[in-house]
Design a protein around this nucleic acid. Structure first.
Lengths: 142, 142
DNA sequence: ATGACTCGCAACTGTACTAGTTACGGGTCA
DNA sequence: TGACCCGTAACTAGTACAGTTGCGAGTCAT
């Protein structure tokens, strides 16, 4: 994986949607104004979150984006999996030399440890929800 | 951070050095043969590991690279910190809108959670040593 | 001293990914 | 019908990484 700011922006957007839940749907242009970027960037990102069923969109006047689950039911782990696709630690670009005892076996050995590390990371991300962040934002922002 | 295959290659190289410890130092050309890449790529990577005092180099004929600590004293966490410099999850590229309550506060809220996630990851990486991998390689490769 | 050997490092290239931007098609609603 | 908004393709610019070449500098045996 080559982590991008997508994860950060996705959490920002979801927190913003939770902040405004109950009112009008938010347009990508409005969201882009909070994140300080381009509406198309936001729509591309939200398309990933929609695929994970975390948001839904509505066209036309008065349309925009809404959260689907309650904020307390969205964990950072779900967001992470929705927007970061690749491996946490990539293996070799080109395969190591199969005639070397280490080169021949290191990838199989590593992938197990990498998988375990990814699980440890996701276990931690699971502890925080969008609602947790919303509470922190509300506490500081007043 | 944009994780690269550097982490994988670094572990591969350290395991290889541990595999050959006690004999001649290994040249970057020999190591490159096992990893299947260019010697300069290996030297660049080993320069990072040397800065972390995990290896040392020796010029001239019969020179090359050696492990400094014992393999059982090198954890994947040390390797990770030696070769991957950036943040695990980058924050926004450009700062969010300070006039938005969420945009104004989300970064501070997130950096704490990111730090905690990084610690969880490193705690897991600390459980595995180069010697563990060497044993796995020896078990499979015979 | 000489020459083979090895690392150290700068410079350059190709590739890939991300973010940002423009443009336009298509569905929705008053 | 027209304003609104999403969906998506296409393009650009910036950045990071892997790979490669070239050359300087230190080391060792003879």
């Amino acid at each position: 994986m080559r982590p991008s700011s997508r994860f950060t922006v996705a959490i920002h957007v979801l927190t913003l949607l939770a902040y405004g839940a109950g009112g009008e749907p938010m347009t990508s242009e409005y969201i882009a104004g909070s994140v300080n970027t381009n509406p198309v960037v936001i729509r591309r990102l939200l398309a990933l979150l929609r695929r994970a069923k975390l948001v839904r969109s509505q066209g036309g006047p008065g349309g925009g984006w809404r959260l689907v689950p309650a904020a307390r039911d969205i964990t950072l782990r779900q967001v992470f999996r929705a927007v970061e696709s690749g491996d946490l630690f990539p293996l070799h670009g080109s395969a190591p030399n199969p005639r070397c005892p280490v080169g021949r076996t290191i990838r199989a050995a590593l992938s197990g440890h990498y998988e375990q590390a990814r699980r440890a990371l996701e276990r931690d991300l699971e502890r925080t929800t969008i609602d947790d962040l919303l509470q922190e934002v509300r506490a500081v922002a007043r």
